[in-house]
Write a protein that binds this DNA or RNA. Structure first.
Lengths: 346, 346
DNA sequence: TTGTACGCGTTATCAG
DNA sequence: CTGATAACGCGTACAA
């Protein structure tokens, strides 16, 4: 019972040849109705299932795509992956996932490994520490579609699906200003990643467009970390001229800030308005729900998958598609001053 | 530039045969130091990478394992997957993930598909609606390790890694009683899944062991849903003899309950103590943090992977391992009455 | 130590 | 319409 039944088995049983069986199974035109029916029946009867490995070796197509994210158990990434899987599963593709742990070395290794596994495409979010791009040459030169999502880098031949971080940031800042805030602080993350740079730029631009001065003291850098968010808030509020709003590039930073503010007698949003980024699930659950920027990870995943499918369709044509999704500002308690009474009920 | 360099290419270049190249690459003993070195050098020079598909077909080993979960973007499942990936990656396995969407039909399809893809093992959490187990026969009969995690079913030949849901539930209830609560309500989920049945049993047993009466009115069934949690809380508190504690089988149910209670003048934990289940990230972030049962998903994933590795090691021996992890009760604000003043500072 | 020949399961290209 | 044969890339008895 070990070995699966092969087309050869069923050929032998029927006294015909494996080639004929193959044809019957593949709706080949050059086959008689009768034998086709016969083959199909006995195939079912013998529980025949095609060996995808053999097929893969033969065709040079594995029906696998590789997905690389820093960590899979981060809500944003797992949601993107969900989108990818749901789009690709109906098309017969299997999704192989790996985690780079934000390490360029590991990312390199994984890309290598995926290429050996003959994946038909790689969909990934760059690791924070990735500087060099040499490890992508092998995949591009082999004409394997490479798609970056969220964290992208401008490389010839690679497509990308991102959100407009600048715009999201701009919207958030604009919203805070619209709430009457005059001194908007910004919590950012190390600028290794372009996305944080763009969020910073969006923030700055919104200030400028509203004739508000940019103050270096109001910008503080931290990791996406609650503890650091607390410290940052403390630092900001202890300034001579403290902010009346905080826009954080991460929800965790925003959360930390809120916790510190609440613990130190500040009223939110009346004293300080806060907006985060990412729309992590917890932001809506809080008693004081947190305003945030939604990145629509599911759509990002689906879109990435679609771009892949498009690209795989005709590989002769070199497509390089840059999709930029629009972020949505979700206004919640943490930034809703009761200026317009009927604007919010909760 | 399309085709990869094969051992045949490098053999031709060196004027030797592919077999020799293969031997050199595989540390075979029967080869001279000189040619071995030569081969290795030119292999590197030509950017040779083994084609895993060919290798897989040859050996009947794909180096892939399949992982099936209901939805990948649920914190618990994505954390388990993280554990699995981190344990298996160093061993050279790739992780293929699929989502059952809680549908037996889809689960069946996926199992089939994974078998065709020649995976070397399947690690999965059953879908809620799975009743029949016929689709597992093919994997067991082919001697492919099948490991259930979290949601399990007793099938001969399949290993499982679960937590002791009974114990977790017992601990939670015991804790509530220890806080002085006399009427502990329980929110459960449809008993299609054994885990919720066991949680119910643990709850009941704890009551019994503390000489507290079991009251059917205090048990309400809902999905893991905030809205339903609210309704359930309302229903419970409107009883003639309302509860002074709620133990919910899910964190989302607990959250809903808390939101309703807070919105209706109840004080937590003074009027009502609440404990959830799963230790979702948001439970610790709330201003009023929520007590919960931690299921250590990461360890569950790692353990599942280890069981798989053990099983694959010698396939002659039929191993059937049942690992039961101990859940941890995490006591937070929502159930910490200020009985012992110095017990909690926050 | 190396070469020869075959097989893994499938499809494709020839003939017939 | 069907059968024989080669090929996908690799590993490995067997022979030399």
């Amino acid at each position: 019972m070990k070995g699966k039944t092969t087309i050869y088995d069923i050929a032998k049983k029927l006294g015909i040849t494996a080639a004929t069986v193959s044809r019957a199974l593949n709706d080949n035109s050059r086959i008689s109705k009768a034998t086709k029916k016969l083959v199909l029946e006995t195939a079912k009867e013998m529980n025949y299932e095609p060996n995808k490995l053999a097929l893969a070796l033969k065709k040079g197509k594995s029906n696998n795509v590789g997905v690389i994210v820093p960590y899979i158990n981060r809500n944003f990434f797992s949601s993107v992956i969900r989108g990818i899987e749901e789009e690709l599963y109906p098309k017969g593709y299997n999704v192989i996932i790996s985690q780079s742990h934000e390490s360029e070395e590991r990312e390199k290794e994984i890309v290598n490994n995926l290429m050996n596994a003959q994946v038909e495409g790689i969909l990934m979010s760059l690791s924070k520490s990735t500087n060099k791009t040499a490890h992508f040459n092998q995949v591009l030169s082999k004409n394997i579609p490479l798609i970056f999502f969220d964290r992208s880098l401008n490389i010839a031949g690679v497509s990308s699906v991102t959100i407009d971080d600048f715009q999201g940031s701009y919207k958030a800042t604009q919203h805070l200003i619209g709430q009457g805030c005059k001194r908007v602080a910004h919590m950012t993350v190390g600028k290794e990643l372009g996305i944080y740079r763009q969020r910073f730029d969006g923030y700055k631009q919104a200030l400028e467009d509203n004739d508000l001065p940019f103050d270096d003291n109001l910008v503080v850098e931290l990791k996406s970390d609650i503890e650091e968010g607390k410290q940052a808030a403390q630092k900001l509020m202890n300034l001579q001229d403290p902010p009346d709003a905080i826009f954080s590039s991460t929800d965790h930073g925003a959360l930390g800030a809120i916790k510190w503010l609440q613990g130190n007698g500040y009223s939110i949003p009346d004293d300080v308005c806060v907006v985060g980024f990412s729309n992590e699930p917890f932001t809506q659950f809080m008693e004081l729900s947190i305003s945030s920027i939604d990145q629509s990870p599911l759509e990002m995943g689906k879109m990435s998958a679609k771009v892949f499918l498009e690209q795989i369709k005709d590989k002769k044509v070199k497509i390089e598609k840059k999709v930029v999704l629009s972020p949505k500002l979700i206004i919640r308690d943490s930034s809703s001053k009761h200026i317009v009474p009927n604007k919010k009920a909760n």
